Simulated assay, not measured.
Amino acid sequence: MAPTFETLEAFAELMRTATGPDKVAYDGATERNGQLTKPPGALGRLEDLAIWYGAWRGMARPVLVAPQIVVFAGNHGVAARGVSAFPSEVTAQMVGNFQAGGAAINQLARTFGARMRVEALELDRPTADFTESEALGEADCVAALRAGWDAVDPAADLLVVGEMGIGNTTAAAAIAASLYGGGAEAWVGRGTGVDDAGLAIKRDVVAAGLKRHGSVRGLSALSAFGGREMAAMAGAMMRARIEGIPLILDGFICCAAAACLETEVAGALDHAVAGHQSAEGAHGTLLAELGKEPLLQLGLRLGEGSGAALAIGVMQGAVACLSGMATFAEAGVATG
């Protein structure tokens, strides 16, 4: 499906037209789950995940054979203010590492049989410093949303979106504070590992951005504070919704981008589960705001989509059990 939006309002209207899961498939998957050779509820959350997945795929006995991981990269003007432990040049260097297959996300993609795509978004043109103006503005935000939209393979049956962008935990904290309140103190963490002085700089920068832009919500927050990689993630997430592709959310930055969608149109993330809770301090708070319970909690804080990629294995296991296990009737096992 080609993108049909040229403005943020047109994108929001597209979001409002998105349909929900397949009720017939949901009922069929639920019925099958109740007949499998196990005590009721014995597989715990895996049972709910598999039924949820089947409903979004329109299959009572679903298969999961074509997961896709897309990693988006962008540079942030606010990074010049010293908010990261690393220089902006690292973004392009890590893109090269992704393309060469040397990053953590490459290993995880290979492990779980996911096809990986890397999209570098105008790395030579950082966003504006959000303490001085909108980071993106409408035209750049729409272009990045479209880039994310176009990066999704409609033939995929599960999507993970990851990111790389020096300074993007600062942008994510500003978005979260704008959407949910609490100020810089509630949302700013150490990101790449800044020291106390760096943490103070990040808080001051976020506070300055909030003072300039106020408490904007939805896509306006993405435009005011976000990076191209964050807007691209949002575009990819919405493409997945339109195509009926279940989505696994990654860490703090990914969830900040997702929160712009959810605060624009309630229910926009119904096709998504949270892959993990990262070690970035405010991620748990953000997940609570989104109403998402993480599948994993392993102390990760890498980004790249790594935590969500690990959760592909959980989803594969859930689907395999629902679709591959025998029913009591098929196995000839007595039920009581």
Score class of each variant (00 low, 15 high):
L64I: 04
T111S: 13
A135Y: 00
R228T: 00
L179M: 12
P3L: 04
A176H: 02
G137W: 11
D157F: 09
G332R: 00
A172F: 07
F11E: 00
A60C: 00
T19V: 10
L302Y: 14
D250I: 13
A232I: 00
F11Q: 00
P126V: 04
I248L: 15
A197V: 15
D153C: 04
I245F: 11
D195E: 08
P87F: 04
G148E: 02
T37S: 05
P154F: 15
G189E: 13
V24I: 05
G41V: 09
L287H: 01
A135E: 00
I69N: 01
T285W: 15
H213G: 04
A155S: 12
G313I: 10
C260V: 10
L136P: 04
I242N: 02
A29N: 01
G303L: 08
E31H: 07
G28A: 15
P40G: 13
A25L: 08
I105W: 10
R239D: 03
P21Q: 11
L123P: 02
T19A: 12
A326H: 08
G267P: 04
G183D: 15
G183K: 14
A207E: 14
I248W: 06
G267V: 10
A272H: 04
G226L: 14
L295G: 05
L49G: 09
K38H: 14
T127D: 00
V160M: 08
T335N: 09
L269S: 09
M325H: 02
V319I: 09
A60G: 06
G324S: 14
R16Q: 12
A135K: 02
R57N: 06
A279P: 13
A73M: 00
G218P: 09
S323R: 02
G191L: 11
K202E: 08
S306V: 10
A200I: 13
F328E: 02
G137H: 05
G226W: 11
N97Q: 04
A128F: 13
E9I: 01
L121I: 15
L300G: 12
I175L: 07
F130E: 01
D129W: 05
V71K: 11
I245P: 00
E6C: 09
V70G: 06
A172E: 10
A176V: 04
F72G: 00
S220G: 10
L295N: 09
V78K: 02
C255D: 01
V319C: 08
L269E: 14
L295H: 03
M94R: 07
A207P: 11
S178G: 05
M315P: 08
L121M: 12
G191Q: 07
G113D: 11
C141S: 09
V265A: 02
T170N: 09
